[in-house]
Nucleic acid binder design. Structure first.
Lengths: 225, 225
DNA sequence: ACGCAAGATTAACATTAGATTAACAAAGCG
DNA sequence: CGCTTTGTTAATCTAATGTTAATCTTGCGT
């Protein structure tokens, strides 16, 4: 699930980003309210976590705009304001839920979970499957033909990317960018090395090879030959 | 839908009873906490709105009793206490939702609506078991192979989290967030230290290790190897 | 069909990030 | 006060990571 966080306090934002990423959500963050709408339209997240007090453009305004534009996403509003009238304002503006700061992380997770269940467009896919290969995002366990494989964190990250869109070709640059966060450095060949390591664990012990090389283009994962 | 209200302040109770009846709900009301359980068993409502501070028997207690009896109903807790720890206490006791007074009637309606839609019963287990390890949430006793272990409060909190979803991987961030709260800095390594202390008590004296490390990802509890 | 780059694979290695642990100091609590 | 719990620091240990360079493969131009 893709979540956009709109929050100006860096400390809070950091906390949210780290925590939710660790939970396996795909997170983007912006601090400026006026950037919210363009970002929403471009990124099309499933859920936006909206701070109520923002510089340049207030959270309530943004929420109303989202609703008037009929954008297909959930809004979870965060606020330090706990008064009745504040919460009513928030819900009136079209927020799906309203959470008062400070809050327990548990509570936030529960609300996100609840919202994503209500959401017909979101697919909180907690398991990826390709052929006999299976990745459980919850336990981070990888199995093939019911046999447990033990992968390292980076290996897992690469595999997750490949499994997220089977058949699709990922260039080295793309893999480097999403897994390592590097955008320029074609001097390295970590990607090749990790593909090698993945193959050793995921393909070699089995009859069919899932990880395919497309010379000059990139790699892809597929259970077809 | 049948709702039982347990609330000692007559003004608040009146407000609720009138408002909810007008919305078409079937409402009963009692003011005394000690009457709550008999009333629940007799009337079998779908939802109970429970004030936290009650004469004779506290709302938290009632909630715990409801859960331990496995009564098939939703609990919406009302309270003037807004602190994180209070809310967590409420949810820990098994409440399905927690609303802070004063609240807007709209909000209450929304929450009731949400609760009545929610799937079967997510009523929290009163005992967590993983392999030979057992945590009794009533007494907060921890046993392994029938031997009683003595854990400190923080150790317990960490273990409870891990046991709440065996197999599931919990990142340090996640553990930090739920056990220590939002204000802690991420530079600390308390989590590691507590994992160590837990292992010493929970794993070391026994043949098999339950607490697993997933390097670069987090920790998890599992009775598999 | 052949040779030869460009591209891809692989093993071995040094480095480093991450995890463990003990010891200590501060805060709580009887 | 004295004992326990709690959280920090820093030394140590360990496995994951990323580099290098040698080797192998593929496809293209002739």
């Amino acid at each position: 699930m893709h979540i956009l966080i709109v929050e100006d306090e860096k400390k809070v934002a950091d906390f949210l980003v780290r925590g939710l990423r660790a939970e396996g959500y795909f997170i983007d963050w912006i601090a400026d309210g006026s950037e919210a709408l363009p970002a929403l339209i471009e990124q099309k997240p499933d859920l936006v976590i909206l701070d109520r007090m923002l510089p340049r453009m207030d959270g309530l305004q943004i929420c109303k705009l989202i609703r008037s534009q009929q954008l297909p996403l959930r809004v979870l509003m965060l606020s330090a304001l706990a008064e009745v009238s504040d919460r009513v304002d928030g819900l009136r503006a079209g927020a799906d839920d309203y959470l008062v700061k400070p809050f327990a992380f548990e509570e936030l997770l529960a609300r996100i979970e609840a919202l994503s269940k209500r959401n017909p467009f979101a697919s909180p896919e907690r398991r990826l499957v390709v052929g006999t290969l299976e990745l459980n995002l919850e336990t981070m366990q990888v199995k093939r033909e019911e046999k447990l494989l033990s992968l390292t964190a980076k290996e897992l990250a690469v595999l997750e990317l490949l499994m997220s869109s089977p058949q699709k070709v990922f260039s080295r640059e793309r893999i480097l960018a999403t897994v390592w966060g590097i955008n320029e450095d074609p001097l390295t060949n970590v990607v090749d090395v990790y593909i090698r390591r993945l193959r050793k664990k995921v393909d070699s012990p089995f009859a069919q090879d899932y990880i395919k090389t497309l010379r000059g283009i990139g790699y892809c994962l597929s259970d077809e030959s």
